[in-house]
Computed example of a mutant assay.
Amino acid sequence: MSHRNARLTVHGRRLLVERVHSGRPVAHVAAELGVSRATAHKWVRRWRAEGSAGLADRSSRPLTTPQRTPAATEREVCELRRARKLGPARIGPVLGLPASTVHRILTRHGLNRLAWLDRPTGTVIRRYERDRPGELIHVDVKKLGRIPDGGGHKVRGRDAGRPIRGMGFDYVHSAVDDHSRLAYSEIQADEKVATCAGFLTRAAAFFHAHGITAVERVLTDNAWAYRKGLAWKQALAEIGATGKLTRAYRPQTNGKVERFNRTLLDEWAYLQPYTSNAERTAALDTFLHTYNYHRCHTALGGQPPISRVNNPVGQYS
């Protein structure tokens, strides 16, 4: 996915370097795509140095932050929060800091909500993740339009690549472990009860093979298959888990898998202009392997999900 204000998507950058590589002047290609010559030269340089990987976005985070609040001051902010339960507007004048800076510090340390603290001790008692792998699995389905042979509009243009009537949809069923973020996905033809039940059985087997030997609870939305489906309830019983439904109209409750769905779209489904549905389907396994074994996860201290399964509980807390 491109940065919010980027003039070119990854596909646009690929077009740029292809046109320049064919021998056309950089200035002409830059004008066609609506970017400056400096921007065009930047992407061409990165492409020549790194290949297609060089066309992806890089983090905007600076290498160093010399103006960041010293660690000792951050500790004082946290201590005032825990000991006296003060808010940013009161901590700021005590330490000579803007209230906005205090708020950022409290957020960084998970202390920005008093409701998350134990009043007598100031210990954080509310967590957005379970304590151990398998304690809770988030399940959801993402619906994607199928790609016609030859590619859709991203390959052939808006007019030539209009959806073909009757192409139908792919239903991407996903399960994400709350503690480790280990993920499993399948592409199915529907989201009927039997399909959902079969997916859950295979997902449990996947987690078992990767070290999560028991699934205790499964969290889903309020779709009929999950609320009323007998096959779904039987699948839960077979893996020894209980079902849990989100609050109605509150997808945030199932936030782990909802966020995974966004990553799924950015780094697999819309990563490149696929020329067929089979090509996109074949790329899913590679994405899942990268996500589980190699892709760094900010909530896990920059480690991939598999490290949370193999390491002691709470290492990245």
Rank of each mutant, 00 (worst) to 15 (best):
W47C: 04
P62D: 06
E74Q: 12
T65Y: 13
A40D: 12
G51K: 04
G54Y: 14
S52P: 05
L95V: 09
A53N: 05
D57A: 02
S60G: 15
A40C: 10
R84S: 03
K85N: 04
R82P: 13
K42W: 05
P88V: 07
P62R: 00
W47H: 10
A89D: 06
W43E: 14
R58M: 02
P66V: 02
R48M: 08
V77L: 03
G96C: 09
R82C: 14
T69R: 01
R61K: 14
A71F: 04
A49F: 06
R75D: 08
L97I: 07
G51F: 02
T65G: 02
L63C: 10
L95A: 09
E74Y: 15
V77R: 05
P88C: 08
A53K: 05
L55K: 00
H41D: 13
P93C: 14
R61M: 11
P62N: 06
Q67L: 10
S59N: 04
R84I: 00
R84P: 00
L95K: 11
Q67N: 12
A89S: 09
K42E: 14
R46D: 10
P98I: 12
L97T: 04
G54S: 00
L97K: 05
A40Q: 13
R48W: 02
L80D: 03
V77C: 02
S59Q: 08
P70F: 05
G87E: 05
S52H: 14
R81G: 11
C78Y: 11
E50W: 02
K42T: 15
P98F: 07
P62G: 01
V44Y: 12
L86E: 11
A40W: 15
W43Y: 14
R84H: 07
A83K: 08
E74D: 06
W43S: 15
W47R: 04
G96S: 11
P70N: 10
R48I: 06
P98H: 13
S59D: 06
R90F: 07
W43N: 13
Q67R: 08
G96A: 12
T73F: 00
A83T: 11
W47M: 01
R75W: 15
L95Y: 06
E79P: 03
W43D: 07
P70K: 06
V94C: 03
E50K: 07
E74S: 04
A71E: 00
L97W: 08
L63D: 03
S59V: 06
P70D: 14
K85Q: 01
G51C: 12
K42H: 10
A49P: 10
P62L: 11
P88Q: 08
R75C: 14
R81W: 08
I91Y: 12
C78R: 14
S60W: 05
R75P: 11
L80F: 09
L63W: 03
T73G: 11
R82F: 03
S60R: 12
L80V: 09
A83F: 00
T39D: 02
V77G: 00
R45N: 15
R58Q: 10
A83Y: 03
